[in-house]
Design a binder for these strands. Structure first.
Lengths: 339, 339
DNA sequence: CTGTTAGCGCGTTCAT
DNA sequence: ATGAACGCGCTAACAG
């Protein structure tokens, strides 16, 4: 379909020189006469010549494309993260192949397969909330395609990843509530197989211990992140025999459901029960019910760092480097809303 | 870096047959003996053979990749649209190369260039709000790369596009308000140079005419979409000498500012003054102030349709078809919230 | 039914 | 300073 595009062969023919001369001239090779060099370049411009990247990709066994798989862009965390990814890739002559898993493991597998077939040079992945087996990632390893996981990372050892340490932010959140006088603080956590949930709980427990408050496991409930699950979990916490006066919630989406439900139960939001959440939404101040504070997870930065790491790996890879595992862990941080 | 991967040549050598036989066997070519066919396939599986797509792309002058350029994924309209795009592309063995212009014309141009170089088979574009010149798109035409614009389309004739007709939805919105008894209805519109704004006004006027109400131009005000502009416009409408009892607002973001300001002025939202908006936000029901109704613009569907159109063009292109221009115009539709 | 061969466009030795 | 020739992996036209 685009057969009319000029090639170096065409240029060579017109100038009565060889293709290799043209190739070298175009690349400013030192051993080409200035005269032929300018000659070639001018004709190239005239003909609107553009190197055929697909040929180069093929020849160099490299596509300068990185595959990105994440749950869904509708979540603003991920749409911000991908901006970070894009910005770094495009600065480095790479390009982004996109795929949303929509939190479906099967879809995730298909995407991995598709991108592998498409010969991406490397991948950035944030796993679906249901991903519990990792063969499809192992496969990539075997195929020698570097992967950097970000934010939602699998629970295995030998991987590269960038994540946000939820412990610090959670500890700050609990401390914030303790200082406000709360003693019975619930943790409305997400799916247990997510690493970040483990960390939330760890931060929660550590903050309690640090303040000499006994950890009560029954104050921790999990949701599968579905609206029904969110409400069920909230219900459970609010019905706890000890009167829960504050809840640390997995994220803003869950928090909205939780606060909505609480309101329906005639509970005064952030008075009878205080809510603290983890930042996902950009519009919290326009919401009917807004958490008192929020743990920031720096999506843009995570995207950036993960991409930088991947590009570094791609460089290294060419030199057949040792298989060290890289990790970058950012500290999450509590932001208190004054609205 | 991935040189260990087996090729058909390798398979051929091991089986002492020719590469073309292997190729054909793998493709279930009719003229290959069942015996060799199974033989080849088995060895392929054993060796974990996978065709090198880059070679195929190169050879077939096709990348099965489509470039998508849109302003920003953070706007939920676009993140939904891209889901529609993805779903169709992935069903058709294509893949999505992503780029956000962030409403920056320069960035948009760079992306077009980059994707062209990457030899995408076609492109889906929603232009930045500042795009006023179209040379970078002309270039694509010359390079014979089909483009389908969606939602935000350039003001030129010879393009393919999918868009949503704002007239129908706006008429429904005004009709809805008229039926509620409103007679003085304001239109808080966006920048006049946007096509979609023209359509909003047209729908507004048509609905009034249809109901034999005189169109009063002073009831139409425009905002530049900045928070200050939004408030200024709202102020102007609320101060109108005729008492405005309902306002049709450009979009949810503007509506939030408008309702917020109105509330500050002791105006009871959707009682003293009713608001109707155009859907951008997925969470309207979680908002502090929610418009009574909203004009739906079907982002997912637009994405789908645009992609289908592009894929069709790609098919056609191979047969060197006539350069007709395709358009699909969906009707926007009013959705009344019952919350 | 199967093998041989010729590209696809480019970079890259190896000659000259 | 330049050219000839090869190969990347695959498909397809042509020959048996």
């Amino acid at each position: 379909m685009r057969s009319k595009q000029p090639t170096i062969k065409e240029i060579a023919k017109r100038l009565n020189i060889s293709v290799s001369t043209v190739s070298r001239a175009l690349h400013d090779h030192s051993s080409i006469g200035l005269r032929t060099k300018t000659q070639v370049k001018q004709l190239a411009k005239e003909l609107n010549y553009e190197p055929n990247q697909t040929a180069i990709f093929f020849q160099q066994r490299k596509t300068f494309t990185i595959g990105v798989i994440l749950p869904h862009l509708a979540e603003s965390f991920f749409s911000e993260a991908i901006s970070g990814i894009e910005d770094v890739t495009y600065k480095n002559k790479y390009t982004v192949l996109l795929g949303q898993s929509h939190d479906d493991v099967e879809k995730e597998k298909q995407l991995v397969e598709k991108m592998k077939i498409h010969r991406v040079d490397g991948m950035l992945i944030s796993i679906s909330k249901n991903t519990a087996t990792y063969e499809h990632f192992e496969m990539l390893k075997k195929a020698n395609i570097p992967v950097v996981f970000f934010d939602r990372i699998p629970k295995v050892q030998d991987i590269h990843y960038v994540a946000c340490n939820m412990i610090s932010g959670t500890m700050q959140a609990v401390k914030f509530l303790l200082e406000k006088g709360h003693r019975v603080i619930g943790l409305l956590n997400g799916p247990e197989n997510l690493f970040a949930c483990k960390e939330r709980q760890e931060g929660y427990v550590q903050a309690l211990i640090k303040n000499r408050i006994k950890f009560d496991p029954s104050l921790v409930v999990n949701t599968d992140l579905s609206p029904e699950g969110n409400i069920k979990a909230t219900k459970e916490l609010l019905a706890h025999k000890r009167k829960v006066t504050a809840i640390v919630v997995f994220n803003d989406y869950v928090a909205m459901d939780a606060m909505h439900y609480a309101h329906q139960q005639k509970i005064k939001i952030n008075k009878d029960v205080c809510f603290v959440s983890y930042a996902n939404l950009p519009f919290t101040h326009y919401l009917k019910y807004c958490p008192m504070a929020s743990v920031e997870q720096y999506p843009y930065k995570q995207g950036q760092k993960a991409t930088e790491m991947l590009l570094e790996l791609l460089d290294k890879n060419e030199e057949e480097a040792a298989p060290t595992n890289y990790k970058i862990i950012l500290d999450s941080q509590l932001v208190v809303y004054n609205g």
